[in-house]
């Protein structure tokens, strides 16, 4: 079993109004050192698969067909052996 973590973020150049609102709020709290805030989404799941390369290929396909809107979003796939597995 593998543990898959997909990190989805907005592409560079795509306006992130939520990130801007968070930056504004952090500024109000005095954290002026935080800038260029970008928001995103993490999707993680357990996968019944043992081969990392095969898993990666399948997960990329999941991203392209459903999980990610490639018009505005990038994704990054991390795959590790499920804790407790040999």
């Amino acid at each position: 079993m593998l543990r898959v973590t997909i990190t989805i973020s907005l592409k560079e150049g795509v306006l992130d109004p939520e990130g801007q609102a968070i930056a504004h709020s952090l500024g109000n709290l005095g954290y002026h050192e935080a800038s260029d805030i970008r928001t995103g989404r993490i999707i993680s799941f357990t996968m019944d698969e043992s081969n990392h390369a095969r898993a990666n290929q399948k997960v990329a396909k999941m991203c392209e067909t459903l999980l990610v809107n490639t018009v505005i979003e990038n994704y990054d796939i991390a795959i590790e052996d499920q804790a407790g597995d040999e």
């Binding site: 795509v14 306006l15 109004p17 939520e18 609102a21 809107n69 018009v71 505005i72």
Partner: peptide, 17 residues
């Protein structure tokens, strides 16, 4: 329709949230 790829582009969160 944009998610299905039938129309170009996408609809994002309103600018003023």
């Amino acid at each position: 329709l944009t998610e299905a790829g039938i129309l170009p582009g996408t609809l994002m969160r309103n600018k003023q949230l």
